[in-house]
Design a protein around this nucleic acid. Structure first.
Length: 905
RNA sequence: GGGCAGUUGGCGCAGUGGUAGCGCGUCCGCCUCACACGCGGAAGGUCACAGGUUCAAAUCCUGUACUGCCCACCA
């Protein structure tokens, strides 16, 4: 005998191994099949599985498994991401913790080697966690890609070279976003804006002529030493006479001009703005307009330079405090107010970003963006949900050039070399801790000459020299990610795989990386393949905590998916997420969300167990009956094929919540609560085999449809059922998704069954309200108003008797109402339940009055509607008929309740 | 400042033209021989607000309020 409750752990472990051994998840080029391809958003090699993965990859798995069962060549391509800054930070922390070493102690080569060692040992560890989630990825070694492996490196080089040759990649000196902590440049979208409580200081700049001068407001007093001007709005009457004059920078003593620029908001602060082109993006632009000199006072380490001696070498934060203190002492601090401003922070370490003048590598984006805009606007690229299309297009329309160089060590090294002879003046070398000479700075302005090459060039095309150094920077990690849907198939080589699997079908990812990643894949795919990398962008929400907050270690609200799978089973975790997976919507998640799904799994298990129990003595395989023997059969077949149809639609429309909910309610609410219960009474008859054939086939088909969502329990049960069904293949993934057969639908059966269920429920309610003991069989009288209803109820009296526990059911037209009865009405059928000794007349009176009130309200509203000329004129006949029927039903209800009430007295 | 999403029973959410559904919770009754991770029943909502379109609006349009997210050069 099987255990009473489903125990997932053993089953899961067994199946994980079986699936991998059976190579169930592989895909190959098969021209006879339509491919369905999803390339995984590659998890970072340092990552651990979290709820975000649990949702994102479960969605992908459900799609992949479904389409495989739909008969397509489904390929879910696995791989990991080297994760640039993020990984470097993790390994640095690890080094510091375990060996008290910094990366500089190791030196560049050794450090990179350390990260590679780490990758080789642990880089795919996350896939072991993926296996536990039941995700159908072929994780054989040769199938796993890595954004830094050799093939992907070739893709990256090819992309760089082609963009360089087209003139899209260039080097320029700009004000860029500098993370002092990570010591690297960042692109604009890697900068986050956090509201922080800060201070706004009002500072006095005295006139050069000894006059009062002007008061400005700033949040960054430490940058006054780099001021190039004071700007006011040209329309500002207060300062008109000052424009063109000079004022003195406090503490520094340097004179700077007062200029007029539209960018200045008159209402903000004092209406006067200090212009510091080297340390603020707005100021930089103002500076450009007015040809102001650019002077930096903060270096790449966040230390002060080019300032009064007192502050030299000081940290920028300390310098701020000191400057404010000194200004106050000098009597030049006029005001200090609290102020909330948006501070730019690094998306990797959340420390404050320093706008910084620096020469970097950029990609010119406008030409790349144009075809992507076109693809989105034309609808060739589809978003699910569609509401993301506009933000996507708007972002592309306002796109800025992409800063792709990073001053870190871990990543794809920029494939540019310099001849030591020809480029000497533009190259700055330093000696590292190991005593090795390192190229640390490249300046095209000072004469560095780039040679784009995968490895070191053989000889310099200008001087014939053979000594080269490679550019020290690495590429933004998103540069290789942008190529992912192509590079996984070997681009730029025109491989068979690339031709078959590209373009892929859908990209399933979170909306938070729509610009960072999705937009760039689209641009690169269009540029290099002339085809979109995918036609559907399926955006999932963020898994949040119960109150809608992001899960984070610091808030202590993190739910670990693996803890949950250990506790409730993997299927329960998956199903709980899928039940809530409406496209693009965030999911508030709590442990309680899982219990419902766990209970459902147990329900499936027990229903199956019951059917198996009753299979004893029956020889399979049993074909799915195509003919109904009675109403219940016809009804369950309708419910079944309708559920299958809706479930499949959910998959096709990326609405997994629809699929999950449909199957949940079909299996539990229809199949278990009604069909199995009704089937029980046929177990003792010669119909048993027929009924079991229906039960086992419907159950099996439902398990198939559920398999993409909850693979373990369905696989396990299906294996036990297989001797009884006509199915080939050891695993569900090898079998076809259940077919929707419209011939099995029956509106008539639905209507009849609704009546049976309705009458049954009315009787059950009476039983419950008058505390009739559950085991006690009672009698009931059904009085119909018309032949049609009479016939239906009469034909299925046995259902009502069974489901409502009725001993004797009297059915007729205008049947008299017995004494001491509770009365209810369904449709036009009066339901009398004699309850001698059990009835409470006060309670019954209240019930009847409530029915009457509802009926009266309905009568009034239907009558009013039918009295409207425009309704009769404009509404479809179907609606008019429906309203009339509702009116008649309400009138019947009222009359019957009134009669019953009169009879009570 | 701009854009997008949301506002539906105590809580969390479905529901894109015909007078509201689900899960959890609550209350009542049941260990009914598949399942108490269960069975049966009940209570509970004028679908944020104000206008408009329509015979008919939770659903479409306009505006308002609140919440959240994204983008943006008010220091």
């Amino acid at each position: 005998m099987l255990p009473k409750a489903y125990e997932p752990q053993e089953v899961e472990e067994k199946l994980i191994n079986k699936w991998q051994e059976a190579k169930l998840f592989t895909a190959k080029v098969d021209k006879n099949k339509k491919p369905f391809v999803v390339v995984i958003p590659p998890p970072n090699i340092t990552g651990a599985l979290h709820m975000g993965h649990a949702l994102n990859d479960t969605l992908q798995d459900a799609l992949i498994r479904s389409h495989r069962m739909f008969g397509q060549e489904a390929y879910w391509v696995p791989g990991t991401d080297h994760g640039g800054i993020a990984t470097q930070n993790v390994i640095e922390k690890k080094l510091a913790k375990e060996q008290h070493l910094s990366r500089h102690d190791l030196g560049r080569e050794k450090f990179v080697e350390t990260v590679w060692d780490w990758y080789n040992e642990c880089g795919n560890a996350i896939f072991n966690q993926f296996k536990k989630m039941g995700w159908s990825l072929d994780l054989s070694k040769e199938n796993i890609r890595f954004t830094m492996d050799e093939q992907r490196a070739k893709s990256v080089y090819e992309c760089f070279k082609r963009l360089w040759e087209k003139g899209y990649i260039y080097r320029g000196k700009r004000l860029i976003n500098w993370c002092v902590r990570c010591s690297t440049a960042l692109s604009d979208i890697e900068v986050e804006h956090e509201q922080q409580s800060a201070k706004l200081w009002h500072l006095q700049y005295k006139g050069e002529d000894g006059s009062e001068g002007i008061t400005i407001a700033t949040t960054r007093p430490e940058t006054i030493y780099a001021d190039a001007a004071i700007a006011v709005n040209p329309k500002d009457e207060r300062y008109k006479n000052l424009v063109g004059k000079k004022v003195i920078i406090p503490l520094a003593g340097r004179a700077i001009p007062v200029i007029a620029d539209e960018a200045v908001e008159m209402e903000f602060g004092t209406g006067a703005l200090k212009i510091t082109p080297a340390h603020d993006a707005t100021d930089y632009e103002v500076g450009q307009r007015h040809n102001l000199p650019i002077m930096s006072v903060i270096n790449d380490k966040g230390k002060m330079i080019n300032c009064p001696e007192k502050y030299l070498g000081m940290d920028r934060e300390l310098c701020r405090k000191e400057t404010v203190k000194d200004l106050e002492e000098a009597g030049l601090l006029m005001k200090e107010e609290k102020y909330n401003n948006a501070v730019s922070t690094c998306y990797r370490c959340h420390s404050a970003i320093e706008p910084f003048m620096s020469e970097q590598w950029f990609v010119k984006m406008d030409k790349l963006a144009a075809p992507a805009i076109e693809a989105a606007e034309s609808g060739e690229l589809q978003f699910h949900p569609a509401s993301w299309k506009t933000p996507f297009v708007n972002w592309l329309k306002n796109i800025q050039d992409w800063c792709i160089s990073r001053q870190i060590w871990w990543g794809h090294r920029i494939p540019v070399w310099y001849c030591r002879h020809c480029s000497e003046k533009g190259l700055t070398f330093t000696t590292d801790k190991q005593g090795n000479e390192q190229l640390t700075k490249v300046s095209f302005e000072d004469g560095a000459q780039p040679i784009v090459s995968y490895g070191a060039p053989e000889k310099c095309p200008v001087c014939g020299g053979t000594h080269f150094v490679q550019d020290p920077d690495v590429l933004d990690t998103w540069f290789s990610s942008a190529l992912w849907p192509m590079s996984v198939f070997g681009w730029p080589e025109e491989t068979e795989e690339l031709n078959y699997f590209y373009p892929t079908t859908s990209m399933v990812t979170g909306y938070e990386i729509l610009y960072l990643w999705v937009a760039r894949m689209v641009m690169m795919g269009l540029e290099f393949k002339g085809k979109l990398p995918f036609k559907d962008v399926f955006l999932n929400g963020i898994v949040r905590d119960k109150r809608g907050k992001k899960m984070s270690k610091s808030l202590g609200n993190v739910i670990d998916p693996l803890d949950m799978t250990a506790k409730y089973g993997t299927d329960a975790v998956r199903f709980s997420l899928l039940m809530q997976a409406v496209p693009g919507k965030d999911i508030p998640y709590a442990e309680e969300s899982i219990t419902g799904a766990r209970n459902f799994c147990n329900k499936i298990y027990n229903a199956s167990r019951f059917i198996l129990m009753n299979m004893e003595g029956i020889k399979g395989p049993l074909a799915m009956p195509t003919e109904a023997k009675e109403l219940a059969d016809q009804w369950i077949l309708d419910r079944y094929v309708t559920a299958i149809k809706t479930a499949r639609e959910g998959i096709e429309k990326y609405n997994l919540a629809l699929t999950a909910n449909t199957l949940y309610h079909f299996l539990w609410g229809d199949f278990c609560d009604w069909y199995i219960e009704l089937a029980k009474q046929r177990f003792q008859t010669e119909e048993k085999e027929y009924v079991m054939a229906l039960c086992v086939n419907i159950l099996y088909g439902t398990l198939k449809a559920l398999h993409p969502l909850i693979p373990f329990i369905t696989e396990e049960i299906a294996a036990s059922l297989r001797p009884y069904v006509a199915e080939e293949g050891e695993f569900l993934l090898q079998q076809a998704y259940p077919v929707f057969d419209p011939a099995l639908q029956s509106a008539e059966a639905m209507k009849k069954m609704e009546m049976v269920q309705g009458v049954t429920k009315e009787i059950r309610t009476i039983r419950a309200q008058f505390n009739v003991p559950p085991g006690l069989k009672i009698n009931a009288v059904l009085s119909a108003q018309n032949e049609e209803e009479l016939a239906i109820v009469k034909a299925h009296a046995s259902y009502i008797k069974l489901m409502a526990k009725i001993e004797q059911l009297t059915i007729g037209i205008q049947e008299p109402k017995p004494k001491q009865t509770a009365t209810a009405t369904f449709g036009k059928i009066a339901i009398y339940v004699p309850l001698t000794g059990l009835i409470d007349f006060d309670k019954e009176k209240k019930r009847l009055e409530k029915d009457m009130a509802a009926a009266q309200a309905n009568i009034a509203s239907r009558k009013a509607r039918l009295a409207q000329e425009n309704f009769i004129k404009n509404a479809p006949q179907e609606q008019i008929d429906k309203t009339k029927a509702e009116l008649a039903a309400a009138e019947t209800l009222l009359a019957q309740a009134q009669a019953a009430l009169a009879d009570l007295a």
